[in-house]
Simulated assay, not measured.
Amino acid sequence: MNSTASESVTADVTEVVLPGKVEPAGLEFRTRDLPAPAKDRVVLRMEATGVSFAEQQMRRGKYYDQPPFPFVPGYDVVGTVTAVGPAVDTALLGRRFAAVTKTGAWASHLVVDAADLMPVPDTVDAAAAETVVVNGITAWQMLHRLAKVPAGGTIVVLGANGGVGSTLVQLARHAGITVIGTASTRHHATVRDLGATPVDYRDPDMYDRIRALAPDGVDAVFDHVGGDAVEQSWQLLRKGGTLVSYGTAATKDEEGSSQLPVLKLFARLSAWNSLPNGKHAHFYNFWAGRRRCRTSWQRRLAEDLDQVLRLVADGSLTPQIAARLPLADAAAALELAESRTVSGKVVIVPGA
């Protein structure tokens, strides 16, 4: 492969294609020529990407603003720059970066805007870094920018064994915050090892169990489930507490509009925010502010990922890698992520 932008083709790229509403086995592969990057863009050779809840929703046509089928999924990526556009500094060649793509990262190579690149230290394994790109930024921003939970506080993390949840638990414990984390019993040992007190999410009395652990209420609840049970999360808060909702997993298998569950959730959170009880309800949107000022949005992402990667580098944060599977096994990776049998994030790597 050539490393200059003057060539018409920079790579033969292999991509995973989501052709429509299919089961994981319905994913398709294609190989094509990758054109040289345009003025402000670069080519990344993928070293690690991953399976997020977004892809699980996208294959059902349930992600809030997904593109029309067919398309290449892949929410984020870690890779090495192999070609640059005419307006991009050639010093980027051969360096490792992360980027948030929303789609397109399940590929051997991809083209991204140079402005979206975030440095990844060579001392951090690519798969480990990939595990905390969107997950780490999301957890950091929810905890420190949105909820602003002080040291000594107590929080509840639903899905504490998941990609975002396991990262959130560790960031909170590093900040001196007590964590109660929900997970199935098979993952309780992992949740304890991360530093949280586990509660079985299948227990019909789960919220009562949490109240017994925090009878005075909690400072924040981080809820990716949504649905009707989000009201129970709201009731766990003490006065001054914050509910951070960041997903609608409860409705992922429901037929109908992908936007309706989110709009219903927005309405509910807005209504709660108007109540005179000192509590706060927020819906976390990773992409908030991008349209208003892309430069400042990109700067915040880079700053927050840098904070997270520093903690990874010094051992304070251990990325939870559920499995590493080659790009050729993307269907198996998606199926494994959806099985709810693993802790952490399923990572896709180039292959042997």
Rank of each mutant, 00 (worst) to 15 (best):
A127S: 15
A83N: 03
G136I: 09
R96Y: 06
D76M: 07
F69S: 01
A115D: 15
V120Y: 06
P73K: 01
P119W: 09
G136E: 02
A98Q: 01
A160Q: 12
V72K: 03
Y75H: 09
G85T: 10
P119H: 14
A83D: 01
A87F: 13
V81E: 01
Q141A: 10
G94L: 12
G79P: 06
G153V: 12
H144V: 07
V84E: 02
V81P: 04
T82G: 05
V149H: 08
R145S: 11
F71T: 04
V81N: 01
V77Y: 11
V112N: 00
A83K: 02
A160W: 10
L146D: 12
K148S: 06
I137K: 03
V157N: 13
N135H: 13
V88K: 03
A139H: 05
A87N: 15
A127G: 06
F69D: 05
A91D: 15
V77C: 14
V120N: 04
A115P: 08
G85K: 06
D122I: 11
K148T: 13
A127P: 06
T82A: 05
D113T: 05
G136K: 03
A151Y: 12
H144L: 05
G74L: 13
S108H: 04
G104M: 05
T131I: 10
M118F: 12
T80C: 04
G79T: 11
G159K: 11
W106N: 00
V132D: 02
F69V: 07
D76Q: 11
T103S: 01
P121M: 09
V120Q: 08
A98D: 00
T103E: 02
P119D: 11
A107S: 12
M118S: 03
D113H: 09
T101Q: 00
M118A: 09
G85L: 06
L110S: 00
V124N: 02
P86Q: 15
V149D: 04
V149K: 03
V72I: 15
G162K: 11
W106R: 04
T103F: 04
V156E: 08
G136L: 02
G94S: 09
A83G: 06
K148A: 09
V156R: 09
A91V: 14
A115M: 07
G159N: 10
A115S: 12
V132P: 02
L143Y: 13
V77G: 02
V134H: 05
A151G: 13
G153S: 12
D89G: 07
L146T: 15
A160T: 11
V156C: 07
A115R: 13
F71C: 02
A128T: 10
R95C: 05
G152C: 12
A147I: 12
T90L: 02
G153I: 13
H109V: 08
